[in-house]
Design a protein around this nucleic acid. Structure first.
Length: 795
RNA sequence: GCCGCGGUGGUGGAAUGGUAUACACGAAGGACUUAAAAUCCUUUGGCCUUUGGUCUUGUGGGUUCGAGUCCCACCCGCGGCACCA
């Protein structure tokens, strides 16, 4: 029996077609034993890139493995189709954003098909379709009803080129992450989601019920940044402090250059200096201000009274105090805060110690721990924790302070002055004011004909027919809200919509969600640690509170995947010219080889590594050898050693896929193949098992060989091989013999005597190589770790 | 500056505190071939007096019978950020 040459291009399209025609991967959600595999859906930018391949091929390996382990796997895919790039590209090329986006989706779906992934594509979600964004609007209205959506003014990051507000996450080095234009601060009217009301519930507990990376949880907790402290009045000036216990050590006050009371506080003779300073601070980009290590600042000329000591202390203005946090003013305690300390030293301000630490710690180190108060009048001797409470109570009783909790997290601004997004379902009537669009009128469809080029007014306002409506309340003249929602709204709940993308009674079917949610495993990038994954958790809790679902966390396990770098080890980018196109790799090596290299060339989770195209020949040759092994298959029975190798591979590959260690799973298959290749003949059982273990990684080739073996379609529906413990036991054991920790010899002994330390010790002593190092020495100790190593310790 | 992750051959990378360098790439040599490619086989961490020995996981200490792995200090790289009062 002789097999032809392995030619991926002859195999792959054929099976992709067959799988689709036979609905091999469609999921019947009514069946039991569900397993929901989710990978962050794709922005339809035009072409699938290596990052998409890495994410989805890994997720697909996992999905296939679970399916073979008799889970009813749900592995949907879709497109995060609203967003700025569509609009920018459209403006640049004169194509309508909708046409551009839908064409890209078609193209990318074809590219996805070449991957041979086992998507449940009959559950596709595309966020720019009215059947999806209708429910963004519905959710908005529910939030509006409950006061969770509100309109406010806000000092926002503003990109003058994109004519739009940017989220904090979208500002890179003080510039717009899309176009690079410097971001300025501008006060804007916009809609907010009140995520701060959920701040406490979004904080991760020490030991959560779900398996999310600790680094992600820590990052989110820090981002939420709950700090409990006190609001304290220094005369009319309010400051926020987390350390009211150090109030006696507050020797000056610092306000931010943006502080509204700064003008009032500035004395006439200092006015010029202060104005110059404020002007200089405003010129600094946010990044410069952050990285500025030299403290700068000027005296305002005025004084306020320390409410505890009654002393008049100076008020300074400095840009190390930020306007966006607390009250934009601080009390400085230079003895116990590093920044205040540096500032005081530079400008010769008073430093007064009020906490005494146990040891001879530097002043500022007395900040934390088990210190007690000194120089604090009647509070001397109190512990830090006691003092915080007692002093805050005292301030409250005198109405010059109160307990206060601040969060770093601020409410989520969702309004965008853009075209390509979900219209905000609100109508403004001169008589009735802000009127929500009635639910029965949803969706508010995005009009096709607008002038979407940036002009300073929202693109939707350029379509008068759409803009002007009758007020739903009074029937009078009214106008729609012409802004659209942040696209993070779309991606905050798409995994619920996947369950039934056509469901038209609610965003999703509660009963179905009860069955299928939460997501069992969610593959995505660490760049979404603070944005998307946090917003999704927020939405899930809102759905919970709306009675739409019982769950509070939407994914049981989160995998942060690695990053595929260019061959030069740098991030792939057009400007660097190091972008590798996956289509070309597939053309050269076939999808199966590319998939295996993806799995093999670096750890999947949290890593980053260079894609060096020539190296895909390795996995390609590996597949070729598997292919050619077909000719060696006979009806013989495998021997004990053969069974050992096979069962080892079954165990290792399964455990490694489960643990998202695809690289070592592939290595285990290579090792087994090396063993099989060294033999004259290979049993049918071994070869079949090999194909089954390889199937999640190389679905096309294994399907082809499976068919050539005369097995029934499809290999992707066979139960995953089970290993048997009895075959994993070796008759002979190898024990390393070491003297003083250095290995000197190997001992091959029968399994039956390996547990007897005395026997092993005597055997070990017989070794000439070992004797050489024991000669003339006294053995002080013998340590035997069964079936691994025996160590002689000498003097 | 703070937080997180990492530093292992020429390269990508393996190693529940128990034989460091699995697996692969690259390289060298050989077989086959008129020749080349492909394929197959062998070798491949450094050093030395080479059937052996010795050193080696960023640097310096420590714990341990035994450390790439645990602890302390430092250096370097990558990612993230909030001078957060």
């Amino acid at each position: 029996m002789s097999i032809g040459k392995y030619i991926p291009s002859k195999i792959e399209p054929k099976w992709q077609k067959r799988w689709e025609e036979s609905n091999l991967y469609s999921t019947d959600l009514s069946k039991p034993n569900k397993y929901y595999v989710l990978a962050e859906f794709t922005y339809p930018s035009g072409d699938l890139h290596m990052g998409h391949w890495f994410t989805f091929s890994g997720a697909d390996i996992f999905a296939r493995y679970k399916r073979l382990n008799s889970f009813n796997v749900f592995f949907p895919n879709g497109f995060d189709a609203f967003g700025l790039p569509a609009e920018n590209a459209a403006i640049k090329r004169g194509i309508h954003p909708q046409d551009w986006t839908l064409a890209n989706i078609e193209r990318m779906k074809q590219q996805f098909a070449t991957m041979g992934a086992s998507f449940s594509f009959d559950h596709e979600v595309i966020t720019c379709l009215p059947e999806y964004y209708k429910w963004n609007q519905w959710i908005f209205l529910q939030m509006l009803k409950r006061g969770l959506a509100y309109k406010g003014k806000y000092l926002s990051n503003w990109c003058s080129k994109c004519q739009t507000v940017l989220a904090n996450e979208a500002v890179e080095a003080g510039a717009c992450w899309r176009c690079g234009t410097e971001v300025v601060q501008k006060e804007i009217d916009q809609w907010f989601f009140k995520i701060t009301e959920y701040a406490d519930r979004l904080i991760w507990p020490e030991k959560p019920d779900v398996d999310w990376p600790k680094s992600l949880r820590d990052a989110q907790n820090i981002w939420i940044g709950r700090s409990a402290g006190a609001l304290v009045k220094f005369d009319g000036l309010e400051v926020f402090t987390t350390r009211p216990d150090t109030l006696f050590g507050a020797t000056f006050v610092v306000v931010s250059p943006e502080h509204p009371l700064l003008k009032q506080l500035t004395e006439a003779n200092e006015q010029q200096k202060v104005e110059d300073y404020v002007a200089a601070a405003k010129k600094k980009s946010e990044l410069e201000r952050k990285e500025n290590k030299d403290k700068s600042g000027v005296f305002t000329g005025s004084f306020v009274k320390n409410p505890m000591t009654g002393e008049e202390i100076p008020v300074w203005v400095a840009d190390y105090v930020l306007p966006g946090y607390g009250t934009g003013a601080i009390m400085a305690v230079p003895a116990h805060d590093q920044r205040d300390f540096e500032f005081a030293k530079k400008f010769g301000l008073e430093i007064k110690q009020v906490i005494k630490a146990g040891g001879p710690a530097a002043l500022t180190q007395a900040y934390e721990g088990d210190g007690v108060l000194i120089n604090s009048g009647e509070y001397d001797g109190l512990s830090i924790e006691e003092a915080k409470k007692v002093i805050t109570d005292f301030l409250a009783s005198k109405r010059i302070g109160s307990q206060m909790i601040y969060y770093h997290l601020h409410d989520w601004s969702i309004s965008r002055q853009r075209y390509w997004g979900t219209p905000i379902p609100v109508i403004y009537c001169e008589k009735c004011g802000t009127v929500p669009v009635p639910e029965e009128d949803l969706p508010v469809k995005l009009p096709y004909d607008v002038d979407y080029a940036p002009s300073g007014k929202p693109p939707l306002a350029t379509n008068e027919d759409w803009l002007n409506v009758k007020c739903p309340k009074c029937g009078g003249e009214a106008k729609r809200d012409a802004e659209t929602m942040d696209t993070f709204v779309d991606s905050s709940w798409y995994f619920f919509r996947y369950l039934d993308p056509k469901f038209d009674i609610a965003p999703f079917d509660k009963e179905l969600a009860q069955k299928i949610m939460p997501v069992d495993i969610y593959f995505g990038g660490a760049e979404h640690n603070l944005g998307h994954t946090l917003y999704s958790r927020f939405f899930t809790k809102i759905f919970h509170d709306l009675g739409l679902t019982d769950i509070e966390e939407y994914a049981l396990r989160r995998i942060n995947h690695g990053i595929v770098l260019g061959p030069d080890g740098q991030k792939m980018s057009k400007s660097r010219g190091n972008v590798v196109n996956p289509d070309e790799e597939v053309k050269k090596y076939g999808a199966d080889a590319v998939r295996i290299h993806m799995a093999f060339f670096m750890p999947y989770e949290g890593s980053s590594g260079p894609w060096i195209s020539e190296r895909v020949w390795g996995p390609y040759r590996f597949l070729e050898r598997v292919w050619n092994l077909f000719d060696k298959v006979t009806g013989d029975q495998p021997q004990a050693k053969d069974l050992l190798m096979m069962n080892r591979a079954i165990k290792k590959v399964g455990q490694d896929i489960e643990g998202i260690r695809f690289n070592t799973a592939v290595a285990a298959l290579m090792e087994w193949l090396n063993y099989l290749s060294g033999r004259e003949k290979v049993s049918r059982e071994e070869y079949k098992t090999f194909l089954q273990l390889l199937a999640p990684f190389a679905p096309h080739m294994t399907e082809e060989l499976w068919e050539m073996m005369g097995e029934k379609y499809s290999i992707h529906e066979q139960p995953w091989p089970k290993f048997e413990e009895k075959h994993l036991e070796e008759e002979e054991a190898t024990v390393a013999v070491s003297v003083n920790g250095k290995v000197r010899d190997q001992l091959v002994i029968g399994k039956d005597i390996a547990s007897d330390s005395k026997v092993v010790e005597n055997k070990a002593k017989e070794s000439q190589k070992v004797q050489k190092f024991l000669e003339g020495k006294e053995i002080k100790k013998v340590v035997y770790i069964p079936v691994k190593i025996i160590n002689f310790v000498t003097d």
